[in-house]
Amino acid sequence: MKTFRKKICLLGHYSVGKTSLTRRFVEDRFDENYLSTIGIHISKQSLVLKDKDMEVELLIWDLAGGERFADVGPYYLRGAVGALVVCDLTDARSSWEMPYHASQLREVNKDAHFVFVGNKSDLTDQIVVSLDDIRRLSADFGGQALLASAKDGSNVSEAFAMLVAQMYR
């Protein structure tokens, strides 16, 4: 089995749940009392693509709240081959910014891969953004989108797997 290492990023508005998605994917837990920190959080998780007989070791770069203060630094995006662009389904404004975040990485790496993720799907009674809305926003960036919930874990691994599959399609 071949092993590959890839750097990917999580992009999105502040407090949409990027770090929670990462933590759920890497550590399989959701921290209810999670407080945003300042800086970059890097974690590692491997995915196995059985059909391609390969293991992909993902180095996941997460801004962990640093995006509150400034635009994403170039060092954050440099070398990244893909990104999960995340919005909060209960906050329409966060979804509007998704193309902007994706374009930042596109400027650094024109071949970058994207998956647009609508987080907090568990808050069914507060959702104001639909999957179709997200699909429309992702149209210029590959058009792959899905709804997920870091809280209950639904579709979290699938989002990362979708991104990896896109890389080796």
Binding site: R5, K7, I40, I42, S43, K44, E57, L59, W61, Y75, Y76, G79
Partner: peptide, 11 residues
């Protein structure tokens, strides 16, 4: 984990 060290150092 060495992989993380590399990324953190680079960051």
């Amino acid at each position: 984990p060495p992989g993380l060290i590399g990324s953190m150092l680079t960051a």
